[in-house]
Nucleic acid binder design. Sequence first.
DNA 1: GGCCAATATTTTATACTTGAAACTTTTTCC
DNA 2: GGAAAAAGTTTCAAGTATAAAATATTGGCC
Lengths: 155, 155
Amino acid sequence: MVSAVARVADDDRARLRLWLRLLRTTRAIERELRERLATAFDTTLPRFDVMAALDRAPDGMMMGELSRFLLVSNGNVTGIVERLVSDGLVVRSHRDGDRRAAIVRLSDAGRTAFAAMAAAHARWIDELLAPIEPDAARDLSTTLATFRSQWENDA
Amino acid sequence: MVSAVARVADDDRARLRLWLRLLRTTRAIERELRERLATAFDTTLPRFDVMAALDRAPDGMMMGELSRFLLVSNGNVTGIVERLVSDGLVVRSHRDGDRRAAIVRLSDAGRTAFAAMAAAHARWIDELLAPIEPDAARDLSTTLATFRSQWENDA
DNA sequence: GGCCAATATTTTATACTTGAAACTTTTTCC
DNA sequence: GGAAAAAGTTTCAAGTATAAAATATTGGCC
């Protein structure tokens, strides 16, 4: 049995410890994914992220929408999309009657290329997170989903 | 009751869903921390990370040690430490009798500055993760810690 | 003593990232 | 209809990030 005093002291640091572990775990996995994407598909994590977002949106997304969805800055998306366009994986056009808004979507080549990457990516994640049993994964997901929804309400 | 078929299909995606949530949650928190560090202390997350690592090592750390601990590349640490040195927060020296190895540690000014940042940082984390109860935080921590140790063994 | 592999770090080229300023186009409102 | 605000994006400067090549130093080994 843990003393009440010890419990309180531990409460004070439980969230900080969790945060540090979240950060390190995420970084370790990202590191591994980055390396695999580079060797297997000669691409990068940000490029994959953009393509993944666009794959979910067959009608395309606006630049700002992409930026908000990926939680990265506006100008950042510009650069990544630029390189994807020059590689022929992404197409840019304009929204009807609004020459401000740019609509980006995957090209056919982009969609094909992404399909292969997504399949490999899913396998990799399943392999890398193998030490976490499906039940534990579901529990953790639920905790994080709840957290996120509370977060959204505050912001 | 969930059917066996549904359960198996869900198992296939449980880890991938968990990963996507981990990534988004971590990014959202990092984003908020970055902003607060900038406004409150005119510093950045990477600088904070380096200083936090050095604060835990009163005798200093080698560059490579720092790089491995923070899970970032070797050359990356060079740049961040360079800027911290030019701001007088970090001191570089050499290990006795080995002019290859560079030892970096916090200066007195660095230690004082970091103390203030660390206190604010701990408060922020506690505030941002408030929706997660201490018990849930401990559970999650444990899952992640177990995962990490399995990970280490594989690598 | 001198070569050579191993160790530790920096440099380089390229890409990613941010916040803020600048730019273009649209909408609002008088 | 025209000024001004708003919306959407890009540009910019600085900092962060990587992998790979280059540099410098040490230790072993003949």
